[in-house]
Simulated assay, not measured.
Amino acid sequence: MQVAVLASGSKGNATFIELDGKKLLIDAGISARRIRQELEGIGQRVEELDGVFITHEHGDHISGLVTLTKKYGVQVYSRPETFRAMSCYRELPIECINPIIDRVRLDRVTVRAFDIPHDAANPVGYVVQGSSRCVVATDMGFVDSSLQEMLEGARVMVLETNHDVEMLKNGSYPYSLKKRILGARGHLSNRDAALAVAGLRQRPRKLLLAHLSESNNRPELARETVQAVFSQQGINDVELYLTDQNQCTCVQL
């Protein structure tokens, strides 16, 4: 399995997963040109994508979608409500649109959508399951027991560590935006993400910290916070990786 976070943050998100011969993209929130360039940098080709799975309709998750479908004919999968809420929905070729509710099977790989709490039409995370298991879960306000169950057993996990609570509270954002981010349909903090992983029965071998805020977080702070929680819990078997808005982070199993 190869997992490459091509970009992650408020300006654009895209994650590539290769598993059992299938090549998938979770979100397409950067330009199709950059997606192609980042894929070529890890020895992959955009023409070989078996599908793009969209988590929700916000611009930082769909901005490259129209070009991907029109130029390369890439198949797109998402919840029906998400498709209808996309600003670019009418520009997508109808033959590339694949509404899903729960899961889709691509040969030996199953991609399952699961509900996440976020301020979008019908947002989801994804479990990619074959001979191994990868979970991508970002843009969520909290982790409840049902969401915790979806995180179980991932060998590689891409998980949101959006903000440090104190940096956000003391930062320059207006109160309404702080309230949104801290709310039940907002974004996950460094500490809450760490606690979610610490509470798993089967923790990932590799954990990629994703969707870091440029204003309310720092990469070293995200890593230190997660490591501190793990240390308190006696956890020393999870490898941490920081993702970035401007460069690819790639891991393999």
Rank of each mutant, 00 (worst) to 15 (best):
P93G: 05
L212H: 15
E95P: 13
P99W: 10
I235G: 08
D102T: 03
G234Y: 08
P117L: 01
L209V: 02
A85P: 07
V111H: 14
V197Y: 04
V238Y: 06
G199E: 11
S87H: 13
L188N: 06
L168W: 15
A121W: 01
V226L: 08
N217H: 08
E149I: 05
E47N: 01
I94F: 15
A137R: 08
S78V: 00
V3W: 14
K169F: 07
D164K: 10
H163E: 06
R191E: 13
N216Q: 12
K11S: 12
P123A: 00
S215W: 15
G9P: 15
L209W: 07
S132Y: 08
V5I: 12
L221F: 11
G43A: 01
S176H: 15
Q232S: 12
H211K: 14
K206G: 01
L221Y: 14
R84W: 05
M157V: 00
N162Y: 14
G141S: 07
Q37T: 09
R203A: 00
N122C: 02
G9M: 10
A154P: 06
I35G: 03
K178V: 06
D50S: 06
Y72G: 01
N98G: 02
K169D: 07
G186I: 08
K70S: 00
T161D: 07
I17H: 07
V229Y: 12
I42P: 08
E239Q: 11
L25G: 12
I97M: 08
Y72F: 08
R185Q: 05
D119E: 06
G9V: 07
R205Y: 05
F230G: 07
R79H: 10
S31M: 09
P93H: 09
G186L: 10
C250T: 02
P219M: 08
S132G: 09
E220H: 13
Q232E: 13
G41S: 07
V5G: 13
G64L: 09
L242M: 14
H118A: 00
V238I: 04
L68S: 04
D139R: 10
Q232D: 14
A210F: 09
S78H: 04
G125F: 09
Y126A: 01
P99L: 08
V5T: 12
C134Y: 13
R218T: 10
R201L: 10
L168D: 13
